[in-house]
């Protein structure tokens, strides 16, 4: 609200003389992001028969408006490893593939560095969907338990 009020004041105070400077101020990006479903679930499986456990697909719906020719990206950052009490499964065992390419890309989850899921330039004027399939590398070394963590999807139009 504060910024908007100043912008309006600027527009009111300066008419034709400063119009070229003030036009960009009116173009504020609008970004929307929705993830469905909001859980990624890996079922228990025999590591020999299922070395990679596939979770049901996640749909990422995104929209970038009033971005001009600017870039945008969607990144993923895990809050930590998968944990079940004192037992842990390194989050780097969770990877993903995504489509459509080239906007969406495959990657490996990290809890320290946000990983790029999708990127592009300009506007996405109507909501578009991307599909992400997560996989957990299975192992006999995992201890029994119900593990969980969270992942933050972030859409940024810088």
């Amino acid at each position: 609200m504060f910024i908007t009020r100043h912008r309006l004041l600027a527009l009111a105070a300066v008419t034709s003389a400063l119009s070229l400077i003030l036009v960009p101020a009116a173009a504020a990006q609008r970004v929307n992001l929705a993830i469905s479903p909001s859980t990624i679930t890996f079922a228990s499986a025999d590591p020999d028969a299922t070395p990679s456990i596939v979770a049901p697909p996640i749909t990422v719906t995104y929209e970038v408006d009033k971005n001009g020719g600017g870039s945008w990206d969607i990144s993923l950052l895990a809050s930590g490893d998968l944990t079940a009490g004192s037992a842990t499964i390194s989050i780097s065992n969770v990877t993903w593939t995504a489509s459509p390419t080239p906007r969406f890309q495959a990657g490996t989850l990290s809890s320290t560095v946000a990983q790029t899921l999708a990127s592009g330039t300009a506007n996405v004027n109507k909501p578009l969907d991307g599909t992400v399939i997560f996989r957990l590398a299975n192992s006999w070394t995992y201890n029994v338990g119900s593990y969980s963590t969270s992942v933050v999807f972030t859409l940024t139009a810088p």
């Binding site: 101020a25 909001s38 890996f42 593990y147 992942v151």
Partner: peptide, 29 residues
């Protein structure tokens, strides 16, 4: 006034939205 306008442009230029997803895995005996 121009300085105020440029500052407003930079502040409005960064748009971010986040969404949290829970990851769960079951490991059975």
């Amino acid at each position: 006034i121009a300085a105020v306008a440029l500052a407003a442009t930079q502040g409005l230029g960064a748009a971010t939205v986040t969404s949290n997803v829970t990851v769960s895995a079951t490991v059975a005996a």
